[in-house]
């Protein structure tokens, strides 16, 4: 046996163990629940004994770092904005939730707006965040509804299930550094260097297989239905708990080919209009907001906004907030603005 354990073999083993242990020790937050891929209620919410709640990158949920008090301080108008990479923005201070907070504070509202945008989050993972924030006494929830992340949601859900599974095929991926290395290569390097045409044609990995699936009309309709069902469930719950809700529906800039650029909402506006309109639930359509303008100036790509777009959106949202406050009698208006709470 001693002759089997050669110094080179022991060194190999040692390096791998060191890497694994090091990652788990030094990146404890991001390792913890990492392979639940955000399919966990508590992922990313770190509660401290002093009552502070920190938003962190953990459990596969990569929140922008922010914090707030578990119990909403009296007079504070707390807004949670749930969404994907559009909500998340280029950075905390260049995204519309931040601009919304500034706008509301300018109007004399002691507002605390928290950006819960996580890139790639679809309906199912947004639903989990929605359920979680109900514990934190929201004054308003802005639900940014998009339907282009469902393939990613589905893929991550399958991965999370696979990771829990017993199948030997997944054993190597239970090692944290193996899994992270695999993901870093296959989802960052590959996507950056190899054009989508090649990746999709040969469906290189499950991510690309999902993208290929997104071009399947049947699959697309299935995802549309899912988004409608989940959003409807969220609206019903908000109504039941009497939490005001704004459904913010995403649109896509279609500027390819020789046709003039246009905005498309993929049926989201109609769905949201059907759900909104009654007390406590408002609808804001990105398409309707930008369509009268020279909208290409506000979009960074087909779906992400430039800072100017974020600012415009924040102002439109602030108007909607005004409607909500008018309904509730303006209970949150204060004389002086309080600073934001991002870390």
């Amino acid at each position: 046996m001693r002759r089997l354990l050669t110094p080179a073999f022991l060194l190999t083993l040692g390096l791998l163990i060191l890497g694994e242990v090091g990652a788990r020790l030094f990146f404890a937050h991001s390792v913890s629940g990492r392979f639940e891929y955000g399919f966990s209620l508590d992922a990313g919410f770190m509660e401290h004994p002093d009552g502070r709640v920190e938003l962190v990158m953990a459990g596969g949920r990569r929140f922008l770092p922010q914090s707030f008090q578990r119990k909403r301080p009296p007079g504070v108008f707390r807004v949670f904005v749930i969404g994907d990479s559009v909500t998340r923005g280029p950075s905390l201070k260049q995204a519309y939730p931040w601009f919304l907070q500034e706008e509301l504070q300018r109007q004399g509202i002691d507002a605390e707006v928290l950006n819960l945008g996580v890139a790639g989050n679809g309906a199912r993972r947004s639903r989990l965040i929605f359920l979680k924030i109900l514990d934190y006494d929201p004054s308003l929830i802005v639900l940014h509804v998009n339907n282009s992340n469902e393939y990613e949601d589905e893929r991550e859900y399958r991965r999370a299930q696979e990771f829990k599974g017993w199948h030997p095929r997944h054993w190597p991926m239970k090692v944290f550094i193996f899994r992270r290395l695999y993901e870093a290569k296959m989802e960052k390097l590959l996507w950056r260097l190899v054009p989508q045409t090649i990746r999709q044609r040969f469906a290189v990995n499950d991510a690309d297989a999902e993208v290929a699936a997104s071009q399947n009309p049947e699959k697309w309709q299935q995802w549309q239905r899912l988004v409608a069902e989940v959003t409807s469930a969220n609206v019903a719950l908000a109504r039941e708990l009497r939490v005001p809700l704004i459904l913010l529906t995403q649109c896509r800039l279609d500027a390819q080919g020789s046709n003039p650029a246009r905005l498309t909402d993929e049926g989201l506006d109609e769905m949201a209009r059907n759900l909104a309109g009654r007390a406590g639930v408002l609808h804001l359509s990105l398409k309707e907001l930008f369509a009268p303008l020279d909208f290409k100036d506000y979009f960074q790509d087909s779906s992400h906004l430039k800072p100017a777009g974020h600012q415009l959106l924040a102002r439109a949202l602030a108007e909607k907030v005004g409607e909500i406050l008018a309904q509730s009698g303006g209970a949150h208006r204060v004389s002086s603005a309080s600073p934001g709470r991002p870390e």
């Binding site: 110094p7 080179a8 060194l11 190999t12 390096l15 991926m173 290395l181 695999y182 296959m186 990995n205």
Partner: peptide, 18 residues
């Protein structure tokens, strides 16, 4: 050798699932 084996192993796992 030990470092080479560890690197080879990491490179292999970075490309599995093909």
């Amino acid at each position: 050798r030990g470092v080479i084996y560890a690197l080879l192993l990491l490179l292999v796992v970075s490309s599995t699932e093909h």
